[in-house]
Amino acid sequence: MRHQQAIQRKVERTTTKFTGTVTCKGGSSRGIVKDLSEVGICFQLYFDINARIGQDVSIESNEFGHLTGAVQWYRGDRIGIRLDPSSNTSAQISSYFKYFR
Rank of each mutant, 00 (worst) to 15 (best):
R2C: 02
H3V: 09
H3C: 04
Q4E: 13
A6Q: 10
Q8K: 14
R9P: 05
R9C: 09
K10E: 15
K10T: 12
K10H: 12
K10L: 14
V11K: 04
V11D: 11
E12F: 03
R13W: 02
K17T: 05
K17A: 14
K17Y: 11
F18K: 10
F18C: 11
F18P: 03
F18A: 13
G20E: 10
G20L: 05
G20M: 08
G20K: 08
T21E: 15
T21H: 06
V22P: 05
V22C: 14
T23K: 14
K25L: 13
G26V: 01
G27D: 05
S28R: 13
S28T: 11
R30W: 03
G31T: 08
I32E: 15
S37E: 12
S37W: 01
S37G: 09
S37D: 12
S37A: 14
E38S: 08
V39C: 09
V39K: 10
V39L: 07
I41M: 10
I41E: 01
I41V: 15
I41H: 02
I41K: 02
C42R: 10
F43K: 05
Q44H: 08
Q44F: 02
A51I: 02
G54N: 05
Q55F: 08
S58W: 00
I59K: 08
S61F: 02
S61T: 14
F64E: 06
G65T: 03
H66G: 01
L67K: 04
T68N: 07
V71G: 04
V71K: 04
W73Y: 13
W73P: 03
R75W: 05
G76W: 01
R78V: 06
G80K: 00
I81E: 07
I81C: 09
L83K: 08
D84P: 00
S86I: 02
T89W: 00
A91C: 00
Q92N: 09
Q92C: 10
S94V: 03
S94G: 15
S95C: 06
S95N: 14
Y96N: 12
R101W: 01
R101L: 14
